[in-house]
Design a binder for these strands. Sequence first.
RNA 1: GUGGCCGUGGUGUAGUGGUAACACAGGAGGUUGUGGUCCUCCCAUCGCGAGUUCGAUCCUCGUCGGUCACCCCA
Length: 465
Amino acid sequence: MPRKKKTDEDGENIPASSSATIQLQTMSKTPQLVKGMKDILPVDQELWGHIRDTATKIATQYGFGRIDTPIVESTTLFTHSVGKQTDIVEKEMYTFEDQGGDNLTLRPEFTAGIARAYIEHGMLNMPQPIKVFTIGPLFRHEKPQADRYRQHHQFDCEVIGEANPAVDAQLILMAFKLYKTLSLPVILHINSIGCLSCRGTYREVLAEYYRTKRSQICEDCKRRLLKNPLRLLDCKEEQCQPIKAGAPQIIDYLCEECKSHFEKVLEFLDVLEIPYSLNSHLVRGFDYYTRTVFEFYLLQNDEDTPSLALGGGGRYDNLVEVLGGRPTPGCGFGLGIERIVNRLKQVLHDGGEIALPPHAPVDMFLAQLGEQAKRQAMVLFEDLVTEGFAVAEGFVKDSLKAQLELANKLNVRFTLILGQKELLDGTIIIRNMEGGEQEVVDIKKIIPILKKKIESVSEDSYLNL
RNA sequence: GUGGCCGUGGUGUAGUGGUAACACAGGAGGUUGUGGUCCUCCCAUCGCGAGUUCGAUCCUCGUCGGUCACCCCA
């Protein structure tokens, strides 16, 4: 294809044409992918589809129905649920004012939108709990790097309207099962951050403890101490580690109900044989979490490089109420699909194998020669497709050579050749691509003949197994 | 948002202060009736902009992008 000549100044200096020809306005800069965004190309769709299918299957098995909420929500939905002090709301939201003056935000997470839908559609009047899942894009304006994008996708499950610890455990089981089905070894990190009252008590104790060590902690932690003491436990600074290690643990400050809830969750996990690691430093970045919080990490065989979480979630017993609904408990998780995709790609890169469902092969190629034959072939192609054959064509090519080349690349078993001569005789050629032998058959009988051929082939391969 | 490293065609790599080599992929063709081999040809002004210079893809700065670490998360 000839390269278009670039015009100066985006074509602004092109003299007005005397004819009525429309002038192309060539862009001086080729548009680029917006920072932090990623195209999901056809080559990757098989992997993506596999993950989506597996996730959907598991969700369905556990009685979850799909929900799709809009990507755009009111900004206040997130500021009130996720919390104004959180990193996400403070600096990572794609927020804008639309033409009508509404303050909107591209969803940075799923739970708030789903809780909104729960309230708005009066789902409290349906049998509780409501169990829903979704898969879709989320937006966070972070500094992009590997495994971290500004638009990423999550598989998300939520159970709203039930406080029983069995829910927490079953959600964790589902996530665990998905990773397991995809052959990704993961370790669960779990903690309980209690309810509003016991967390409040703990926060005081923790802050008190840190205040005595103030001179020894890093600058960030001094800030955290004032703004959000729980985040102190998240610090990875070297100098803070010993202080962190000696810090009071929230487990010891849980109220009776919260403690019992957490114990029951762990008992379920034991019975279900889900490997977990109690992580008293796990807090998570959303304000709405209560009681159970958890994250999944890839189980590394070498040194446990604290990689990025593959997924996470927790309980949010106050969220619905905060958003103006009746007091309603809830629990859920989100798993990053890109992170799963990247792990699986790594497995493939390292020479491993991933059991992808076999993709349907193309059975045959329909080649034509000559204008008349091409017209007839287009009709025949429709018949073949309607009959359910996986058939490819090369109507944009005129030479038989080019078409056979295509057929070869597609790895088809047969190529049907319809030329002028066959058209006149009312026949068609079936070429076996493996050996190259050809037979001329009556075009009227082509469909039953092909059916027989395809059948016998699939029987053969069945026997070979 | 802060700091380090990086930026040559679709991909993976060469290379030099005087306008770029190789492999693969892709396209066209080797006289519109036959594929997987072979042959020929085509496909990059070296991310973008500015500066230094007689002249820069190679030097400097900026910018954009990628990547890694921090932050935090999926």
